[in-house]
Amino acid sequence: GPGLTDLFKTEKAAVKKMAKAIMADPSKADDVYQKWADKGYTLTQLSDFLKSKTRGKYDRVYNGYMTYR
């Protein structure tokens, strides 16, 4: 089956995709945050998933999740 690194890459891609969806349409934020909360994502995990070469690119999404939880 898929190894943990593959799983991480898949999760990371999914999280980034959802983060971009929030940035494009902030009204989606609560739905996405709820999904992440259901998956039990911690802020540390989210921070790892949303690492970007562009500093602060996903800060709004991260901060939103922090206040959501």
Rank of each mutant, 00 (worst) to 15 (best):
Y65R: 00
D25Q: 04
K53E: 11
K16W: 04
A13G: 05
K28C: 14
Q45Y: 03
K9C: 13
P2T: 11
K12S: 13
P26D: 05
K57G: 04
G64F: 02
K35E: 14
D25L: 03
K17Y: 08
K16Q: 11
A37P: 00
A29W: 02
R55W: 08
V32E: 02
L46G: 00
Y65N: 00
G1T: 14
Q34H: 09
A29C: 06
Y62R: 07
T67M: 15
L43T: 06
P26N: 06
G64Q: 03
Y65T: 00
P2W: 03
K17W: 08
K51C: 15
M23F: 04
K16G: 03
A37N: 08
L43Y: 06
S52W: 05
L7K: 12
G40S: 04
K17N: 07
L46Y: 01
G40H: 05
P2C: 15
D30P: 11
L7E: 14
K9G: 07
M18T: 03
T54W: 08
D6Y: 04
D30M: 11
M18H: 05
Q34P: 04
D31F: 15
G3T: 14
Y41T: 02
N63W: 15
K39R: 11
M66Q: 13
A24Y: 08
R60P: 09
T5E: 14
M18Q: 14
K12C: 08
A19N: 00
S47E: 09
T67K: 15
E11Y: 04
M66L: 13
Y65V: 00
K57M: 09
K53H: 09
V61N: 00
D48P: 03
Y41D: 01
L7R: 12
P26Y: 07
D6N: 08
S27Q: 07
G40P: 06
T42S: 10
F8D: 09
V32S: 03
D6L: 06
K12H: 05
K53P: 07
W36L: 02
D30T: 10
Y68R: 02
G64I: 02
D6E: 10
Q34S: 11
Y33T: 00
T42Q: 03
T5V: 12
Y33L: 01
K28T: 10
K51I: 09
D38C: 13
V15Y: 01
G3Q: 13
M23I: 11
V32Y: 06
D25I: 03
M23G: 02
G40Y: 03
F49I: 06
A13M: 10
Q45E: 07
N63F: 15
S47F: 10
F49K: 02
Y68S: 03
K20E: 10
R60L: 13
K57P: 04
T54P: 15
D30N: 13
I22N: 00
D6V: 07
K35F: 13
S52T: 10
S27N: 07
V32L: 04
D48M: 15
R69Y: 09
Q45A: 07
I22Y: 01
N63D: 11
K35L: 15
R60K: 14
A29Y: 02
V15G: 00
Y33H: 02
Q45M: 13
D30F: 12
K51E: 10
D30R: 11
M66H: 08
L46D: 00
Y41K: 01
P26Q: 07
K57Y: 10
K39V: 07
L4F: 12
A14R: 13
T42N: 05
R69M: 15
N63M: 13
T5N: 13
M23K: 03
D31I: 10
G40M: 05
K16C: 06
A21G: 05
K53W: 05
M23V: 05
M18L: 07
L50S: 00
Q34K: 14
K35A: 13
M66F: 08
K12D: 03
K35V: 14
Y33F: 08
Y68Q: 02
Y62C: 08
L50Y: 01
V32N: 03
A19C: 03
K17C: 12
P26G: 05
Q45N: 08
G64K: 02
S27Y: 06
Y65E: 01
F49A: 05
A21I: 13
K9H: 08
K53V: 05
R69H: 06
W36H: 00
A21F: 07
G64N: 04
M23N: 04
P2A: 11
F8Y: 15
V61Q: 02
Y62Q: 05
Q34M: 09
G3A: 13
V61R: 00
T44I: 12
K12T: 07
L46I: 11
K17H: 07
L50D: 00
M23D: 02
T44N: 13
R69N: 06
S47C: 12
D6S: 08
Q45R: 07
G3E: 13
K28F: 07
A21P: 01
A29S: 08
S52Y: 05
K20Y: 06
Y65H: 00
Y62K: 13
K16F: 04
R55I: 14
Q34R: 14
T54M: 06
T44M: 14
